[in-house]
């Protein structure tokens, strides 16, 4: 199932609705990296609230997205990881080091607002 990417002001929001096949995640990665440029986005939010499982491939792809998006000049935040999923990921050593995660979409937007304001002031 393809993930819909919504544009919200200077941000792109990708809400994952159901478990994804590897190909879908790769497709999401390509689309996001592409659209950061076309929409001149400052930030990317990936909402994983609906996911019961986040495996190693998904984790590494999320990490790739964050790094690629940074190279394209925007920030990435992963939002809505469920408590059980979080613990399972960490136990498997998939800790998403160096990538910002927040509780939910609202927090993610607040984080990006703060971050982009700091960058703008500099």
């Amino acid at each position: 199932m393809e993930v819909v990417i919504l544009k919200q002001g200077p941000y792109l929001i990708a809400t994952i609705q159901s478990a994804l096949a590897d190909a879908d995640i790769v497709q999401l990665r390509d689309a996001l990296v592409q659209q950061v440029g076309t929409h001149r986005a400052r930030g990317v939010i990936i909402d994983v609230t609906a996911l019961d499982v986040i495996d190693s491939f998904a984790t590494s792809t999320l990490r790739d997205i964050a790094h690629m998006v940074r190279l394209r000049g925007a920030k990435t935040v992963i939002v809505g990881i469920q408590p059980d999923v979080a613990f399972a990921m960490v136990r498997m050593g998939l800790g998403l080091e160096g990538i910002t995660t927040t509780l939910d979409l609202e927090e993610g937007l607040a984080y990006l607002d703060r971050e982009t304001k700091i960058t703008a002031n500099q």
């Binding site: 960490v90 998403l96 995660t101 509780l103």
Partner: peptide, 12 residues
């Protein structure tokens, strides 16, 4: 240590 990491994934 795992708990601290998990909490970070929840944004805390």
């Amino acid at each position: 240590v795992l708990t601290v990491e998990s909490a970070r994934l929840l944004g805390a």
